[in-house]
């Protein structure tokens, strides 16, 4: 079982600028996790708790995979870590697993780093005998990730970039609109990515009554239902995304309220990031010293 010495990173590599894949030793979580679930991590003892979806797991090796986009202080610091470094706390698996059964034809849409979250469920859909149509996209070529992985589990795969630098020029909803216009049979859509993208997908599918699921990304603290920081409005009701989600029926989600709530700490986030960017190396060294000290102390016991 995991001790307080933290969780060892066994592999770390960039998939795209600012998007890094980590394989981390967490045998218990690796054994238990199901597609759609997430972990909460805390890098060091002054760190914050941040939720990250489990992109893959290898129970035999006892590792979980997370894919992190460096946006704010914590994710940028995380992306400076390398193989052999340790993360102080990882708790999980959290949240409800994705609902996976044989629906028929399923369209799985991943926007940017959202593809990492959609991928394990896409694979599970495929294994359950569904006809999987993948649509992945990003603002630009660099931000299209997991193309090979998605291709391996999709019967058809469409790629879009906002600037046309790769795949077709446009948004991920464009191939979806086309499929609908072609009267293709679609039994379910799973869309994961930035809020405006998930909202756009919901607007496309709603008039056609195509069941659409989104994975919401509200701010979280504990991830176990004790604070309600992650509350979202679904069907006019307050729901806690960490225990009742993170996946919800896209046609019932109040995206507007979610987007506004996610901007709640913008000023704080800016300040933390600016302060960090003045000397990121110092922060990294401070935590690695801490880790080494902890290791030394544990050895002496």
């Amino acid at each position: 079982m995991q001790k307080s010495t933290g969780f060892e990173i066994v592999e770390a590599r960039f998939l795209a600028p600012d998007i890094k894949l980590f394989k981390i030793k967490a045998p218990l979580i690796a054994e238990k996790q199901k597609p759609g679930q997430f972990v909460i991590i805390r890098i060091h003892d002054r760190g914050e708790r941040v939720p990250l979806t489990i992109a893959d797991a290898d129970p035999a090796r006892g590792t979980i995979t997370i894919i992190v986009q460096g946006i704010g202080k914590t994710t940028k610091l995380l992306n400076m870590l390398e193989s052999g470094d340790r993360i102080m706390d990882i708790v999980g698996p959290l949240g409800h697993p994705s609902e996976v059964e044989k629906f028929g034809t399923v369209v799985v849409i991943g926007g940017g780093v959202g593809t990492a979250i959609a991928y394990p469920t896409a694979r599970a859909f495929k294994q359950a005998g569904n006809y999987v149509i993948g649509i992945i996209g990003g603002r630009t070529k660099d931000l299209v990730i997991l193309e090979n992985e998605m291709r391996a589990v999709s019967d058809e795969l469409y790629i879009t970039t906002d600037d046309g630098s790769y795949g077709e020029k446009g948004l991920v909803i464009d191939p979806l609109k086309r499929l609908i216009a072609e009267k293709r049979k679609i039994d379910r859509v799973l869309a994961i990515g930035p809020i405006p993208m998930m909202r756009a997908v919901a607007e496309v599918t709603k008039p056609h009554n195509i069941k659409t699921i989104v994975s919401l990304n509200p701010i979280m603290v504990d991830g176990t239902g004790m604070c309600g920081g992650c509350r979202v409005i679904v069907s006019g009701q307050t729901r806690f995304a960490c225990v009742e989600g993170p996946e919800f029926d896209a046609h019932l989600v109040d995206f507007d309220s979610l987007q506004k709530r996610n901007a709640m700490y913008r000023e704080f986030e800016k300040l933390a990031l600016e302060r960090f960017l003045q000397n990121p190396q110092a922060e990294l060294e401070a935590i690695s010293h801490h880790c080494k000290l902890q290791e030394l102390l544990n050895q002496q016991k």
């Binding site: 002054r46 760190g47 914050e48 708790r49 202080k73 914590t74 603290v221 504990d222 004790m226 604070c227 309600g228 920081g229 700490y265 704080f268 986030e269 300040l271 933390a272 302060r275």
Partner: peptide
Amino acid sequence: EYLTRVNLMAAYKFPEADTP
């Protein structure tokens, strides 16, 4: 949530502690 941020996560020390 308020008390967890301030007590457990030491948000009163922000930005020395990361939780706002």
